[in-house]
Design a protein around this nucleic acid. Structure first.
Lengths: 97, 97
DNA sequence: TTATTATATTCTTATATTCTGATATTGCAA
DNA sequence: TTGCAATATCAGAATATAAGAATATAATAA
């Protein structure tokens, strides 16, 4: 498969993974600090299963990584440049019109 | 509705609008120059109706604008900062893993 | 007018996403 | 062990998105 199409495919999957309000909010939170699933759950008003699925999806698409410490799992942005990307997106599209 | 959620909603819709290989490719092309629907159709190997739908979606979500000149309609990026965003996304996610 | 080219819209079918509730797994402490 | 807290996975229903075929509209030319 053409290398170019693969790139587009990967990139569009990452974008799709960002393109959901809950996930965007998760990314926002994680752009400030690493968080436990439990912490996210408190901040987010999402069902536990649903949250877990969102996290897993973003991890799978390369947006997040996680580490386990005993009972809990910490999630964080895989690459800090995502912070800049998020800021730009919110700046560009976050306002009306 | 909380202003913050609206921002997230808007931004995530824009991201979703970018999160499709065909649309990402369209954005790539348009980041070099304004194009006619017909030109895009030649470059893209997409059905005409489908292309039109993709364009309309991106316009609706604030990624593109268009102007009509006689018979044809030119599309272009609504904001040139999108170019930077695209470049960053491709750099971050376009490669393997 | 009518015909033609360029683009848009509608409808339909196939597929994908999202969310929820139920169940499973993991790690640790009693 | 057993039990509990934290997280993950599974299965299904509801909803959304993608694409193609057919049809519609717009602009112009003949």
């Amino acid at each position: 498969m053409p290398n170019d199409l693969r790139s587009l495919e990967k990139a569009s999957q990452a974008l799709k993974a960002m393109g959901h309000p809950a996930r965007l909010q998760i990314l926002q939170i994680l752009s400030q600090a690493e968080r436990t699933v439990g912490e996210l759950a408190e901040l987010l008003d999402l069902g536990q299963a649903n949250l877990s699925q969102h996290l897993n999806l973003m991890k799978d698409k390369g947006l997040l990584t996680s580490r386990r410490t005993g009972n809990q799992v910490f999630y964080r942005l895989r690459d800090n440049r995502l912070m800049g990307l998020l800021a730009l997106v919110l700046d560009l599209f976050g306002r009306e019109l």
